[in-house]
């Protein structure tokens, strides 16, 4: 009986469910990417040494304070509440006209994720050996060049697992956007239940779908991480006796 009903939901409402999944993935993906960009920008700003120029230093300190407040507020309040405040705050300030839903959802997830990414990126930058900066300075790179050429590429590799984790969290947490009516997967479940009154069956389907998404995404990201960890071998070119000889050196694969 139960399985038949579940199957009927899948068959009957598959277009709603797929659309909901698409919206969920879209918002989670863009939100994670934009959040990472916010994290990188704030991380670079906060780890840049203060300028000797009084005015620039003052501006920098102000900016740092604003970033700290942003991080504290967005990490210290639920995204569901943030959604309501931002969505209806915009309407309040604009004479009742509301934001289009999907862009609003992307904005909310991005800015929320950004607050977490800010800490992840900053930790990533701080944990890079100071010698990497000094090596870059010693050949004449500016702080910004050292950051972009040497440090950030290493940070990106190191924080990839945390970024993947944020993406998976976002897939699940976009469900709170149903409070402002974004038609993501959880919202679709509510809509289907309102038609068939089969609450348990409907949410079971949605539960499985969420799991399929997070499981698949986790595996894909893990593969990418492995790829990015680089080849564990390199080629020694041209031995002295035979210039065509190539010696392949394999490193012990890190576990």
């Amino acid at each position: 009986m139960f399985f038949v009903q579940v199957w009927e939901i899948v068959v009957k409402y598959h277009s709603y469910l797929l659309k909901g999944m698409g919206t969920t993935l879209l918002i989670a993906l863009i939100g994670t990417i934009v959040g990472l960009v916010i994290g990188l920008l704030t991380g670079i700003v906060r780890t840049t040494p203060f300028s000797k120029n009084k005015l620039l230093c003052g501006l920098h300190k102000t900016l740092n304070s604003i970033i700290s407040v942003y991080i504290e507020v967005f990490r210290g309040t639920p995204m569901m509440v943030q959604s309501m405040v931002i969505y209806w705050g915009y309407a309040f300030l604009n004479g009742g006209s509301t934001l289009p839903l999907i862009p609003a959802g992307i904005f909310i997830v991005s800015i929320n994720t950004g607050a977490y990414m800010a800490e992840i990126v900053r930790g990533g930058i701080i944990s890079i050996d100071k010698g990497q900066f000094e090596g870059a300075y010693s050949v004449g790179m500016t702080h910004f060049q050292a950051m972009m050429q040497v440090v950030i590429p290493q940070v990106m590799r190191n924080i990839l697992p945390s970024v993947s984790n944020e993406f998976v969290i976002n897939i699940k947490d976009t469900s709170v956007l149903n409070v402002i009516g974004v038609a993501e997967l959880y919202y679709m479940a509510g809509a289907i239940k309102a038609i068939n009154f089969q609450t348990f069956q409907t949410y079971t389907v949605v539960c499985v779908l969420y799991f399929i998404m997070t499981f698949t995404v986790t595996r894909i990201l893990r593969l990418i991480e492995k790829k990015l960890n680089g080849k564990a071998n390199y080629t020694i070119c041209g031995s002295q006796s035979d210039s065509h000889a190539e010696i392949h050196v394999h490193e012990q694969e890190e576990s």
């Binding site: 050996d129 010698g131 990497q132 000094e134 090596g135 870059a136 300075y137 010693s138 050949v139 004449g140 790179m141 500016t142 050429q149 040497v150 590429p153 290493q154 590799r157």
Partner: peptide, 19 residues
């Protein structure tokens, strides 16, 4: 920056760019 291109440095800990 420009000055450092004239005066290079080699460190005890090498400080090669790991990436």
């Amino acid at each position: 920056s420009k000055y450092r291109t004239h005066v290079g440095m080699v460190f005890q800990q090498f400080n090669l760019f790991e990436n």
